[in-house]
Computed example of a mutant assay.
Amino acid sequence: MTGPVLAESLAAARQRLADALSRASRPVADARLLAVSKTKPAEMIREAWHLGQRDFGENYVQEALEKQQVLADLEDIVWHFIGPLQSNKTREVAEHFAWVHSVDREKIARRLNDQRPEALPPLEVCLQVNISGEASKSGASLEALPALAEAVLALPRLRLRGLMAIPAPAEGLAAQRAPCARLRQALEALRERFPEAPLDTLSMGMSDDLEAAVLEGATLVRLGTAIFGAREPRP
Protein backbone atom coordinates (compact mmCIF):
# COMPACT_ATOMS: atom_id res chain seq x y z
CA MET A 1 0.00 0.00 0.00
CA THR A 2 1.57 3.27 -1.13
CA GLY A 3 0.72 6.69 -2.48
CA PRO A 4 -2.99 7.48 -2.82
CA VAL A 5 -4.06 4.17 -1.28
CA LEU A 6 -2.27 4.83 2.02
CA ALA A 7 -3.56 8.40 2.01
CA GLU A 8 -7.10 7.13 1.57
CA SER A 9 -6.84 4.48 4.27
CA LEU A 10 -5.30 6.89 6.78
CA ALA A 11 -7.98 9.47 6.02
CA ALA A 12 -10.66 6.81 6.46
CA ALA A 13 -9.17 5.75 9.82
CA ARG A 14 -9.13 9.36 11.01
CA GLN A 15 -12.73 9.83 9.93
CA ARG A 16 -13.78 6.66 11.69
CA LEU A 17 -12.17 7.88 14.92
CA ALA A 18 -13.76 11.31 14.52
CA ASP A 19 -17.18 9.74 13.95
CA ALA A 20 -16.76 7.55 17.04
CA LEU A 21 -15.77 10.56 19.16
CA SER A 22 -18.78 12.47 17.87
CA ARG A 23 -21.07 9.57 18.75
CA ALA A 24 -19.57 9.57 22.25
CA SER A 25 -20.08 13.36 22.53
CA ARG A 26 -16.34 13.80 22.99
CA PRO A 27 -14.11 16.49 21.43
CA VAL A 28 -12.18 15.42 18.34
CA ALA A 29 -8.90 16.07 20.17
CA ASP A 30 -9.82 13.64 22.97
CA ALA A 31 -8.24 10.60 21.27
CA ARG A 32 -5.60 9.98 18.67
CA LEU A 33 -4.57 7.21 16.33
CA LEU A 34 -1.61 5.01 17.12
CA ALA A 35 -0.57 3.53 13.77
CA VAL A 36 0.57 -0.04 14.40
CA SER A 37 3.42 -0.43 11.95
CA LYS A 38 4.81 -3.84 12.91
CA THR A 39 6.01 -5.84 9.86
CA LYS A 40 5.61 -2.74 7.66
CA PRO A 41 8.64 -1.19 5.92
CA ALA A 42 10.22 2.07 6.98
CA GLU A 43 9.27 3.66 3.66
CA MET A 44 5.58 3.17 4.45
CA ILE A 45 6.01 4.73 7.90
CA ARG A 46 7.77 7.71 6.30
CA GLU A 47 4.86 8.12 3.91
CA ALA A 48 2.36 8.06 6.77
CA TRP A 49 4.49 10.63 8.57
CA HIS A 50 4.33 12.92 5.54
CA LEU A 51 0.54 12.53 5.75
CA GLY A 52 0.61 13.89 9.30
CA GLN A 53 0.76 10.71 11.38
CA ARG A 54 3.21 10.99 14.28
CA ASP A 55 2.50 8.09 16.68
CA PHE A 56 3.65 4.63 15.58
CA GLY A 57 3.42 1.35 17.51
CA GLU A 58 5.87 -1.52 17.21
CA ASN A 59 5.77 -5.03 18.72
CA TYR A 60 9.21 -6.41 17.88
CA VAL A 61 12.29 -4.70 19.28
CA GLN A 62 14.89 -5.58 16.65
CA GLU A 63 12.58 -4.77 13.76
CA ALA A 64 11.73 -1.43 15.35
CA LEU A 65 15.36 -0.49 15.96
CA GLU A 66 16.17 -1.05 12.30
CA LYS A 67 13.30 1.20 11.23
CA GLN A 68 14.25 3.87 13.75
CA GLN A 69 17.74 4.02 12.30
CA VAL A 70 16.38 4.52 8.78
CA LEU A 71 13.88 7.14 9.97
CA ALA A 72 16.19 9.01 12.35
CA ASP A 73 15.71 12.25 10.39
CA LEU A 74 12.02 12.39 11.43
CA GLU A 75 12.71 14.18 14.69
CA ASP A 76 9.11 14.49 15.89
CA ILE A 77 8.10 10.89 15.28
CA VAL A 78 6.85 9.20 18.46
CA TRP A 79 7.66 5.52 18.93
CA HIS A 80 5.42 3.38 21.14
CA PHE A 81 6.38 -0.15 22.19
CA ILE A 82 3.14 -2.13 22.44
CA GLY A 83 4.23 -5.79 22.43
CA PRO A 84 5.09 -8.20 25.25
CA LEU A 85 8.34 -7.10 26.84
CA GLN A 86 10.98 -9.57 27.97
CA SER A 87 13.68 -8.71 30.49
CA ASN A 88 16.48 -9.07 27.93
CA LYS A 89 14.89 -6.39 25.71
CA THR A 90 14.23 -3.68 28.27
CA ARG A 91 17.46 -1.75 27.63
CA GLU A 92 16.76 -1.27 23.92
CA VAL A 93 13.21 -0.18 24.66
CA ALA A 94 14.29 2.18 27.45
CA GLU A 95 16.84 3.80 25.15
CA HIS A 96 14.83 4.07 21.92
CA PHE A 97 11.13 4.49 22.67
CA ALA A 98 9.04 7.36 24.07
CA TRP A 99 6.16 5.14 25.27
CA VAL A 100 5.76 1.61 26.57
CA HIS A 101 2.20 0.24 26.76
CA SER A 102 2.99 -3.25 28.01
CA VAL A 103 4.40 -2.95 31.52
CA ASP A 104 2.74 -5.72 33.50
CA ARG A 105 5.09 -6.41 36.41
CA GLU A 106 7.41 -4.51 38.72
CA LYS A 107 10.58 -6.25 37.51
CA ILE A 108 10.10 -4.89 33.98
CA ALA A 109 9.30 -1.43 35.31
CA ARG A 110 12.44 -1.33 37.43
CA ARG A 111 14.63 -2.42 34.54
CA LEU A 112 13.13 0.23 32.26
CA ASN A 113 13.67 2.87 34.94
CA ASP A 114 17.28 1.88 35.61
CA GLN A 115 18.11 1.69 31.90
CA ARG A 116 16.39 4.91 30.78
CA PRO A 117 19.15 7.38 29.79
CA GLU A 118 19.34 10.51 31.93
CA ALA A 119 19.54 12.65 28.78
CA LEU A 120 16.06 11.55 27.73
CA PRO A 121 12.77 12.60 29.36
CA PRO A 122 11.06 10.03 31.57
CA LEU A 123 9.59 7.08 29.71
CA GLU A 124 5.80 7.34 29.29
CA VAL A 125 4.29 4.12 30.62
CA CYS A 126 0.95 2.33 30.50
CA LEU A 127 0.25 -0.71 32.63
CA GLN A 128 -1.08 -3.62 30.60
CA VAL A 129 -4.15 -5.24 32.14
CA ASN A 130 -5.42 -8.72 31.28
CA ILE A 131 -8.92 -7.31 31.30
CA SER A 132 -10.64 -10.47 30.01
CA GLY A 133 -8.67 -12.88 32.20
CA GLU A 134 -7.30 -14.84 29.24
CA ALA A 135 -4.56 -17.35 30.03
CA SER A 136 -2.90 -16.65 26.68
CA LYS A 137 -2.66 -12.87 27.21
CA SER A 138 -0.06 -10.81 29.02
CA GLY A 139 -1.12 -8.27 31.60
CA ALA A 140 -1.59 -7.67 35.27
CA SER A 141 -4.83 -8.58 37.00
CA LEU A 142 -7.16 -5.84 38.19
CA GLU A 143 -6.39 -6.89 41.76
CA ALA A 144 -2.65 -6.38 41.22
CA LEU A 145 -3.00 -2.91 39.67
CA PRO A 146 -2.83 -0.67 42.77
CA ALA A 147 0.43 -2.19 44.02
CA LEU A 148 1.97 -2.15 40.54
CA ALA A 149 0.94 1.46 39.99
CA GLU A 150 2.39 2.48 43.34
CA ALA A 151 5.69 0.79 42.47
CA VAL A 152 5.88 2.49 39.06
CA LEU A 153 5.02 5.91 40.48
CA ALA A 154 8.05 5.63 42.77
CA LEU A 155 10.43 5.23 39.81
CA PRO A 156 11.82 8.62 38.71
CA ARG A 157 12.68 7.71 35.12
CA LEU A 158 9.16 6.47 34.38
CA ARG A 159 5.96 8.53 34.05
CA LEU A 160 2.83 6.51 34.62
CA ARG A 161 0.19 7.70 32.16
CA GLY A 162 -2.53 5.07 32.27
CA LEU A 163 -3.69 1.61 31.29
CA MET A 164 -3.67 -0.60 28.19
CA ALA A 165 -5.67 -3.70 27.37
CA ILE A 166 -6.45 -6.05 24.50
CA PRO A 167 -9.94 -7.36 25.30
CA ALA A 168 -11.04 -10.76 24.07
CA PRO A 169 -12.98 -10.64 20.80
CA ALA A 170 -16.71 -10.16 21.31
CA GLU A 171 -19.78 -9.80 19.12
CA GLY A 172 -21.98 -6.75 19.46
CA LEU A 173 -21.39 -3.29 20.86
CA ALA A 174 -22.55 -4.05 24.40
CA ALA A 175 -20.27 -7.08 24.73
CA GLN A 176 -17.34 -5.07 23.35
CA ARG A 177 -17.98 -2.16 25.69
CA ALA A 178 -18.01 -4.30 28.86
CA PRO A 179 -14.23 -4.95 29.16
CA CYS A 180 -13.47 -1.40 28.02
CA ALA A 181 -15.73 -0.12 30.79
CA ARG A 182 -13.84 -2.25 33.32
CA LEU A 183 -10.55 -0.74 32.18
CA ARG A 184 -11.97 2.80 32.39
CA GLN A 185 -13.25 2.09 35.91
CA ALA A 186 -9.84 0.74 36.89
CA LEU A 187 -8.20 3.95 35.70
CA GLU A 188 -10.75 6.03 37.58
CA ALA A 189 -9.98 4.07 40.74
CA LEU A 190 -6.24 4.70 40.30
CA ARG A 191 -6.90 8.42 39.82
CA GLU A 192 -8.75 8.51 43.14
CA ARG A 193 -5.96 6.60 44.86
CA PHE A 194 -3.10 8.58 43.29
CA PRO A 195 -4.52 12.07 42.60
CA GLU A 196 -1.12 13.61 41.84
CA ALA A 197 -0.32 11.14 39.04
CA PRO A 198 -0.84 12.21 35.38
CA LEU A 199 -3.23 9.34 34.67
CA ASP A 200 -4.81 10.54 31.43
CA THR A 201 -4.38 7.60 29.02
CA LEU A 202 -6.54 4.64 28.06
CA SER A 203 -4.82 2.65 25.31
CA MET A 204 -7.59 0.43 23.99
CA GLY A 205 -9.53 -0.16 20.84
CA MET A 206 -8.44 -1.75 17.58
CA SER A 207 -10.07 -2.33 14.21
CA ASP A 208 -12.88 -4.56 15.53
CA ASP A 209 -13.83 -2.59 18.65
CA LEU A 210 -12.79 1.02 18.04
CA GLU A 211 -16.30 2.42 18.54
CA ALA A 212 -16.83 0.54 21.81
CA ALA A 213 -13.46 1.68 23.14
CA VAL A 214 -14.11 5.33 22.27
CA LEU A 215 -17.53 5.22 23.93
CA GLU A 216 -15.75 4.06 27.10
CA GLY A 217 -13.06 6.75 27.03
CA ALA A 218 -10.14 5.47 24.90
CA THR A 219 -7.51 8.14 24.29
CA LEU A 220 -5.11 6.07 22.14
CA VAL A 221 -6.64 3.76 19.53
CA ARG A 222 -4.32 1.20 17.92
CA LEU A 223 -4.98 0.60 14.21
CA GLY A 224 -2.71 -1.39 11.93
CA THR A 225 -4.34 -3.22 9.04
CA ALA A 226 -6.94 -0.47 8.62
CA ILE A 227 -4.12 1.99 7.88
CA PHE A 228 -1.35 -0.08 6.30
CA GLY A 229 -3.23 -3.04 4.83
CA ALA A 230 -2.79 -6.75 5.57
CA ARG A 231 0.43 -7.67 7.36
CA GLU A 232 3.10 -9.79 5.78
CA PRO A 233 4.21 -12.83 7.80
CA ARG A 234 7.36 -12.23 9.81
CA PRO A 235 10.43 -13.95 8.32
Rank of each mutant, 00 (worst) to 15 (best):
A135K: 07
R161S: 08
G139M: 06
L158F: 07
L158A: 04
N113I: 07
A144E: 12
S132Y: 03
A140L: 04
P146T: 05
L155P: 06
E118H: 14
D114E: 14
S141K: 04
E134S: 03
S136C: 07
L155F: 08
K137C: 01
L160E: 07
E134W: 01
S141L: 05
S132C: 12
K137H: 04
R161Y: 10
V125H: 03
Q115V: 09
G139P: 09
A147V: 11
V152G: 01
D114H: 12
R159V: 14
V129N: 00
R161N: 10
P146R: 03
S136W: 01
K137Q: 02
L123V: 08
P117N: 07
L120K: 14
L142Y: 07
C126V: 03
L123E: 04
A154N: 13
D114S: 14
R161A: 11
L160R: 09
V129C: 02
A149S: 15
V152E: 02
Q128F: 00
A144Y: 03
V129K: 00
E118C: 14
A135E: 11
K137P: 01
A151R: 06
A140V: 05
E118K: 15
A140W: 00
R157C: 12
V129P: 00
V125N: 05
P121F: 10
A147N: 12
E134C: 03
V129Q: 00
V129G: 01
R157V: 12
S132I: 03
G139Q: 04
R116D: 08
R157A: 14
C126W: 01
Q115G: 05
E143D: 15
P122G: 11
E150C: 13
D114G: 13
C126E: 01
L142R: 10
N130M: 05
G139L: 05
I131R: 01
N130Y: 00
A147M: 07
Q128T: 01
S138K: 03
R159Q: 15
V152L: 10
A147R: 09
G133I: 05
K137E: 00
L158P: 05
V129W: 00
L120A: 15
L127M: 11
L120I: 12
S132F: 03
L145M: 10
V152M: 10
L120V: 12
C126Y: 02
L142A: 14
L120S: 13
E118I: 15
L120M: 15
L148M: 06
L145H: 06
S136A: 15
A135Y: 04
V129E: 00
E150I: 10
P156Y: 08
